[in-house]
Design a binder for these strands. Sequence first.
DNA 1: TGGGGTCGTTGTAGCGCTACAATTATCCAG
DNA 2: CTGGATAATTGTAGCGCTACAACGACCCCA
Lengths: 343, 343
Amino acid sequence: MVSAAMTSGPPLPPPAVRMSDVAREAGVSPMTVSNAFKRPEIVLPETRERILSAARRLGYVPNGIAGMLASGRSNLVAVLVPSIRNSSFARTIQGLSDALSEHGFQLLLAVADTADSEFQAVESVLARRPAGIVLTGNEHHPDTVRLLRQSGVPLVETWILSEPILDMAVGFTLGDAAGEMARFLVSRGYRHIGFAGYLPAERSRFLERQRGFQSALRQAGLRDDLIFHADETVGFAGGRLAMTELRAREPRLDALFCVTDIFAVGALFECQRRGIAVPRDFAVAGYGDFEIAAEVVPGLTTVRTRGYEIGRAAASLVVERAAGRATTSRVDVGYELIIRGSA
Amino acid sequence: MVSAAMTSGPPLPPPAVRMSDVAREAGVSPMTVSNAFKRPEIVLPETRERILSAARRLGYVPNGIAGMLASGRSNLVAVLVPSIRNSSFARTIQGLSDALSEHGFQLLLAVADTADSEFQAVESVLARRPAGIVLTGNEHHPDTVRLLRQSGVPLVETWILSEPILDMAVGFTLGDAAGEMARFLVSRGYRHIGFAGYLPAERSRFLERQRGFQSALRQAGLRDDLIFHADETVGFAGGRLAMTELRAREPRLDALFCVTDIFAVGALFECQRRGIAVPRDFAVAGYGDFEIAAEVVPGLTTVRTRGYEIGRAAASLVVERAAGRATTSRVDVGYELIIRGSA
DNA sequence: TGGGGTCGTTGTAGCGCTACAATTATCCAG
DNA sequence: CTGGATAATTGTAGCGCTACAACGACCCCA
C-alpha cells in the first residue's frame, strides 16, 4: 500500500466514540453508562456525574440506532400530509412537532399527495419501526390499509372523525361546519349561494364539506347545484374563476362559500376589482381562518379550524399509547364560525 | 398463569416477520434475501421473484433499524428550520422532500427557533446518525457548531451564502437583493424610504437584508435610519405598525420596504384603509414573492427567492456526498426582482 | 481432460446497544 | 455477629440485519 490517499470513496468518518469507550474512561461497565443515560435514577449520582463528564470529554453521542434495535422501542413518529404549503397542515405539523419534542420524540415527515405515493411513504416509513404514524384524512388505498393494519403500529388519522377509522382519530365533524356556514348565509338573507371547491378526483377529502353545504341548502329549499371545482394547483385565482363561472350560470348569485380561505380571499379581491359591494350585494365565506382572513378588508367570515390543536392531540395519542397507557381514541377539537365583515 | 389478558402494558405487537422467515419460506439463505432487496442485480431473476413473492405472502417489511446498524449507512436526512409557517421554509421543505424521496431518502424534521432548541435538536438528531443535516442560516451557537463538526455528518446551510459556512451551503447573497430593491425604489423617484423588519435579537438572519438596504440608501445620499422593528409574532399587522410609526417620525415617508411579503401586504391594506394612493403617493415593496403578492391589488413589487430550489439543491448536495461523489459545496440559486404595481 | 474464470449463493462475524438475571456491596434487625 | 433485605453494578445474550470472504457449480478454452 502506497498511501491512504489512494483509497476511493468518501473520506472515512472519524471512528465514532462508543459506549464502551465512555465506560472505560469512567471506570465502569458499559451497562452502567447505558443506565446513566436512560435510567439516571438507578445510578449513584456521583457515578453518573463521572460518566457524564467522561462522555462530554470524549464527545460521545449515543447511537440511537443500536439502542432501538436492542430495545425494540423507537422514539420516532411519522407524519404523512398531502401538502405542507397548506397553512392548516403546517399548523398541524407545528403542533405535532411541539408536543413530540416535549416528550423526546422525533418527527419523520412524508409528503404524499396521491394514493401511490402514500403507499410508498407508508412502506418506507414502516421500515423504521416508528412508535406511531399520523395520517391525514381517512381515505387510503386498501393496500395501504392492509400494510398499516398488520404493522401493529399505533395510527392516528387527523382532520376527520368519521368512519371508517383505522385506530385513533383527531378532528371534528367536517360536514357540520360547512352546513352551519351555509345556514348562516341563508339566515343573512342570501339566496343564491355558490360553492367553490377542488376537483373531487384529487381531493376527495374536501368532498365532505361540499356535501354538508349542499344538504343544508336543500333543507332551506334553495338550489344546491352552484358548484365550481378548481384544479388543486390554483391558489387565490380559484375564487376569481369561481365567481366568473358561477355568475355566468346564475346571474343572481349573491354568495360564495369557499373550501379554503385562499379561494375566498381571491373572491374578495375579485369583488374589489369588479366594484361589487361586500357584504351588501355579495357575501364571501371561507374555511380555515388563515391569518389573512383577519387582515383583508372587509374581514373574511370563515370557519376556524384548530390545526395546531389537532397536531398536539395526535401527538398525545401516540405518546400515551407508546407509554402503554390506555387512552381515548377519538378527540374532537371542534371548530368555530368566525363572523367578520364579508358575510 | 391464568390468562394472557392479565398481562399489563401495551398489547403485544404481533411477532414481526424477519428476514430469516422469508428465507425459509423461499428456500434460500437470509443473505440472499438481503441481496434480493438491496442488490437485485446480483440475484438470479427467478430466485429474486421467489423471494419477493414469499415476502409478499408473509407481509415482510424489512427492519431498517437493523439494516442501518449493520451497514453503518442511513437514508435519513435531518432538516432544522426555525419555523414551518413561514412560506419560504415550507417551500424549502417541499423541495427537500421531493428530491429526497426520489433518491429513497427520508426526512426528519426538527423545528427549532432558538439557539437552545437548535442545540437540543442537533443532539437528538445526531443520535440517529443521519446521512446529512440541513440547517437554516449560518448563525449557530458555538456548542452546536462543535457538535456538528465532530459528528462528521455532511452539513448544508441554506438561505445564505456568506461565511462562515460549516461545510456546504445553498442560497444567494442576501444583502444584494435588499440593496437592489432599495436602488430600484430610488430610481423610481422615492426619497424617504423606510424599512420594516424583525427585532434583530430574535431574527438576526434578517439583519443582512437591513444592512444591504441601508448601505444602498447611503450610497444614494438618502437617509437610512427610517427603520422599524416588529416582534416576530406579528403577521400582516407589522406593515400597519411600521407605517404608523415611520410616518410619525418622517411625514414625508413615501416608500416602505418590508423583510417579508406579509408585512408588505399588511402595509398595502393599511394604505387602502387610509386612502393613500399606491404607487402614486406611496410605494410598498416586499420580500419573498409569496403567492399573495401576485393577487393583491395593486400587485406587490417584491424579491422572488427560490425556496423550492434551495430545498432541492440542498438535497442533492447531501445525496451526492452520501454516494461518495465529490461535488460543489456552494450553490447560488439566485433571486429576482419582481416589479408589479405597488412600486 | 483439466485449470481458471465467472456467476450465484452461503456461513460467519459482528454493528452498538439494552433486557434481564446474577452479582457484589451496604445496611439494619434480631 | 449474622441472615436477609435493599441498592448499585455487572456479564451474558441477542436485537435483525449486512460485509466479506469463501464456496460450489458451471463454462470455456487450451
